[in-house]
Amino acid sequence: MSVEVRIPTILRQYTGGEKAVAGSGATLVELIDDLESRHPGLRDRLVDEKGLRRFVNVYLNDEDVRFLGGLETSLSDGDNVTVLPAVAGGAPGATARA
């Protein structure tokens, strides 16, 4: 059971510069644990104590996992997972909506 994970430029410091890495897991949270075992530091950039970080987007194939099952989203062999940091910001004093 293998899933391809596309890594954005900013996180390639954890993958030795690789744009895509292979991982496995029945759910997204298991996949992230598996990636962390080979690419230490990556998990912390994707999740915090509340779950998936607000300004990190994770897609299963073409779908944002927030509209699927979040960290509990089920994965199948051959799936593609894409990680993209949000492109966002705000004026002084603005607070991001969670």
Binding site: P8, N57, Y59, D62, D64, R66, T82, L84, A86, V87, A88, G89, G90, A91, G93, A94, A96, R97
Partner: peptide, 23 residues
Amino acid sequence: PMLNAARSPTFYEFDSQDLLRLY
């Protein structure tokens, strides 16, 4: 040009699907 999904005078964020399509 991208859509500001936040449609806000103090915040901007690319729509998540637009972001995937863009990249």
